[in-house]
């Protein structure tokens, strides 16, 4: 740690301050959200900032409603999200995010500090949030001195650790439209308790009877696909083959493919995907069922 390359540090008090601090920023300007990923990355020399913009005082927290959507501040941490998840129907977008947040590993310390915006911006293919945002058809609200733009989740995630965010933009909010989901299911498939997942799947039962499914951790970016309802049950081989085909097509459409890594090879990921989707769909169907019975 020598004095000369000490990065400039600012902790703006609001979004305008963040935007001003980022004006003209290049790749050397590093945003600090909860810090759970970026601070260790600095310690280990993977990230060498020329300037640090700390979002911790900018107030980008809180959850509010806005014309048919729930808007979540990018600095909302997992613990706050879980605390806010009360009395909402099983199809509410926060229900899916809360399901995912409940499975975040690393203990309460990570839930207290890790943020939704940080997870989205980091774009680790193995993270929970990116796949959920794609499943929800979320829009990512990016602010810069040039103005505010919204990018659909599917177009935000460009690859492993790559997003559509430009260096002078801050992810300010996540816009979660209230879609036609009746209930959500979520399954994170991993081979050891604190390991990263091999495949994650979020699934919604839609009002029209169909299903929307998203896959995470399977490829370098999350993808969504529509799947017909399993009229003969989720164990039906014909339905599982449809899911497998749909997943392969959804990945190919985005120029992605099942990945090989230390956790599993691509062949294994492809084989296990219909099983994990089936479990997520079963969860969603149970949720929809309970709601139906609750109403009757």
């Amino acid at each position: 740690m020598t004095g000369e390359d000490t990065p400039r540090y600012t902790a703006p008090a609001d979004l305008d301050g963040v935007v001003a601090a980022l004006e003209g920023a290049d790749e050397g300007t590093v945003l600090v959200g909860g810090g759970t990923m970026v601070v260790p990355a600095m310690t280990h020399g993977h990230v060498v900032p020329s300037a640090l913009v700390d979002l911790g005082r900018a107030g980008l927290t809180g959850i509010r409603e806005e014309d048919g959507a729930t808007v979540v501040g990018a600095m909302t941490d997992y613990a706050s999200l879980l605390a806010a998840d009360t009395d909402r129907g099983p199809g509410h977008p926060l229900r899916l995010l809360a399901r995912a947040a409940a499975g975040i590993t690393g203990g309460p310390q990570i839930r207290n500090r890790g943020t939704l915006g940080g997870s989205a911006s980091y774009a680790n293919p193995a993270s929970d949030v990116p796949g959920c945002l794609v499943a929800l058809g979320a829009r990512l609200r990016l602010a810069s001195a040039r103005g505010v733009r919204e990018v659909p989740a599917q177009e935000f995630f460009l690859g492993a650790f790559r997003t559509a965010r430009r260096p002078d933009e801050v992810l300010a909010e996540l816009v979660l439209p209230h879609g036609d989901a009746l209930a959500w299911g979520y399954v994170k498939f991993k081979l050891a308790e604190s390991s990263w997942p091999v495949v994650t799947s979020a699934a919604a039962v839609l009002a029209g009877g169909g299903l929307r499914v998203a896959l995470g951790a399977a490829a370098d970016r999350p993808v969504a696909l529509d799947v017909p309802a399993p009229h003969r049950g989720t164990a039906d081989p014909a339905w599982r083959a449809l899911v497998a085909d749909g997943a392969a097509r959804a990945l190919a459409d985005r120029g992605a493919a099942f990945v090989d890594d230390v956790l599993a090879d691509a062949h294994y990921r492809a084989a296990v995907t219909p099983v994990i989707v089936a479990r997520a769909v079963e969860g969603a169907l149970r949720g929809a069922d309970r709601q139906e019975r609750g109403r009757a």
Binding site: T36, V39, Q109
Partner: peptide, 22 residues
Amino acid sequence: TGDCGACTVLVDDRSVKSCSVL
């Protein structure tokens, strides 16, 4: 790296891993 928790402290009553906070 944020994994072990040996560095845990409470910041404004909430536990954090102090190796992952500037």
